[in-house]
């Protein structure tokens, strides 16, 4: 039943000793959504996924997955696959042994699909996981995660270390698996632009809080770039929140919320209105200053 929140986080706080990584984090994720968890380095993406997988327990607040707390919970553990860079397997096992082991544990395990994907990625079945290169390890981990066909798949930076072509292929593999067997998939990444085409919704996390949780369409429509005469634009945007500002010899541009402007009026004033990609929206919404890196050199 799509629409029922499968994952609920309420006022979640997570501290590592004195460092507060997540605070007052509240969100709910519906069943069967393919979501992107976007954020800068250290924003708290991995910590949130580890909490959902039951690897960590929240310092404060409440997390429920399938209506239950995921920490030390067999029901959630049986239905969540958490893929991350630090995944390890017994060193004595070849990748084929690992697949055989997974077959014993996961009722929906797709053995033939896993082997075909492994073959496609040129990973020999007699290789040991710890001997694989960084990119191969990531590929293997992702294949393992997809073939397990769990109700919830949490993929933490799954493409780390992969080369360009296998990244594209693996994104396609995720999409094909999702279309064939819809389930909740959350992919965390810094690179929204390369996986934008897959996603249904975006969860933007910044400084340990959810900054934005909306559908991809809404995010793409959220901001616009205005280019034109500096004085005119400054006058028009004086009472608006400016997310980005850039000035050079010939141009002046700002990024503001789309619903705050009147596009027809701007066109008559010779101001160019350009769309802002979802990736840029996330970047601007988590920037420290309005000018980006240029501010540092001023």
């Amino acid at each position: 039943m799509i629409g029922v929140p499968e994952i609920i986080c309420h006022q979640v706080e997570k501290r590592y000793r004195n460092k507060r990584v997540l605070h007052s984090l509240t969100c709910s994720i519906n069943k069967g959504k393919l979501s992107g968890l976007i954020g800068r380095n250290g924003a708290g993406k991995s910590t949130l996924l580890k909490l959902l997988a039951g690897h960590l327990k929240p310092t404060n607040g409440e997390i429920t997955v399938f209506g239950e707390c995921p920490f030390n919970n067999l029901k959630t553990a049986s239905n969540i696959m958490f893929v991350e860079e630090g995944m390890t397997f017994p060193p004595l096992f070849t990748v084929l042994d690992i697949f055989k082991m997974a077959k014993d544990f996961y009722p929906n395990w797709q053995h033939e699909l896993a082997k075909r994907l492994l073959d496609y990625a040129n990973i020999p079945t007699n290789a040991f996981h710890h001997n694989l290169s960084k990119g191969q390890k990531s590929t293997f981990n992702l294949i393992y995660g997809l073939a397990s066909r769990c109700t919830i798949s949490l993929l933490d930076e799954p493409m780390n270390g992969m080369d360009e072509s296998i990244r594209t292929d693996m994104y396609r593999a995720i999409l094909k698996e999702y279309i064939a067997y819809p389930r909740t998939i959350i992919i965390s990444s810094h690179h929204l632009n390369e996986m934008e085409h897959l996603l249904e919704e975006i969860i933007l996390i910044d400084n340990g809080q959810i900054k934005l949780h909306a559908s991809l369409d809404d995010v793409q429509q959220m901001l616009v770039r205005l280019r034109g005469d500096i004085n005119l634009i400054r006058k028009l945007t004086s009472d608006m929140e400016v997310f980005f500002e850039k000035e050079d010899l010939f141009h002046y541009e700002v990024v503001v919320e789309r619903n705050k402007i009147d596009e027809k009026l701007l066109q008559t004033m010779n101001i160019l209105v350009q769309p802002v990609t979802a990736s840029e929206v996330c970047k601007f919404m988590t920037s420290k200053g309005k000018g980006g890196i240029d501010d540092v050199f001023k």
């Binding site: 039943m1 069967g32 067999l74 049986s78 017994p90 009722p107 769990c150 819809p182």
Partner: peptide, 24 residues
């Protein structure tokens, strides 16, 4: 939509024993 896996505690423990015996 996929249904939830229902796996018993004992089944998981037995599987883990089987694979740990091999692993170690």
């Amino acid at each position: 939509m996929m249904s939830l896996n229902e796996i018993s505690f004992s089944q998981i423990v037995l599987n883990q024993v089987k694979w740990k015996m091999k692993a170690y």
